[in-house]
């Protein structure tokens, strides 16, 4: 038996230029999850950014909604080999959230409601490359896809786009997350097919 859920309804694309190596296009939106789906009420939701000195910045839902929003359209690439093109999101750029955060950290450990973690270099979360996304295709982001809000880092494999995001920990040292400690690549660039450690 394969350990990996390969996704659903896959087919080979007619034009493969947008497709990283080893991927196939899907028009569905497969739900992958390592545990039960947390149901977080917007009234209870919080996102914290914690610096390497311990300083904590916290946004509640109203605070997040008060920030300027982007509407990125991006392609998604899951390490289980499906890719989905042209997904439309609404969310707040990490550049906005981190604008007033003083840090010299280079590493980030992202934490989620439900206990999931993943690590990303800080450089990959800034300069218009990442969002805290709360809207998908014109509606609220559904809980099974990470709602009320998830990280969206579309240039890396989708396991880096932590669902149900709750914390951004800025760190001096790199700490591997949930899948990174279980054989998956520390960085996860789909265009270099960095699926597993050693790739």
């Amino acid at each position: 038996m394969a350990f990996i859920s390969r996704g659903f309804h896959g087919r080979r694309p007619s034009a493969g230029t947008k497709l990283p190596p080893g991927q196939y296009e899907t028009t569905g939106f497969p739900v992958l999850s390592a545990g039960p789906t947390p149901r977080i009420r917007k009234d209870d939701w919080q996102l914290s950014v914690t610096t390497e000195t311990g300083k904590r910045h916290v946004w509640d839902w109203a605070g997040l909604m008060a920030l300027p929003a982007d509407s990125p359209t991006v392609d998604l690439h899951c390490v289980t080999k499906w890719s989905k093109f042209g997904t439309q999101w609404q969310g707040v750029s990490l550049d906005v959230l981190l604008a007033d955060v003083e840090t010299s950290a280079e590493h980030v450990l992202v934490t989620s409601y439900g206990g999931y973690t993943t690590n990303v270099p800080l450089a990959d979360l800034v300069d218009g490359k990442a969002w805290i996304a709360y809207g998908y295709e014109g509606g609220d982001l559904a809980p099974e896809h990470g709602g009320p809000a998830r990280l969206l880092v579309p240039h890396l494999y989708l396991w880096k786009s932590a669902k149900w995001v709750s914390g951004i920990e800025l760190r001096q040292s790199d700490v591997p997350g949930f899948w990174e400690t279980a054989g998956y690549h520390n960085y996860g660039d789909p265009w270099r097919e960095q699926r597993y450690q050693g790739d």
Binding site: F3, S5, L32, S33, G35, T80, Y184
Partner: peptide, 11 residues
Amino acid sequence: VYKHAPGLVAR
């Protein structure tokens, strides 16, 4: 066991 994931996760 959650198996619709990059690996098997047994809780």
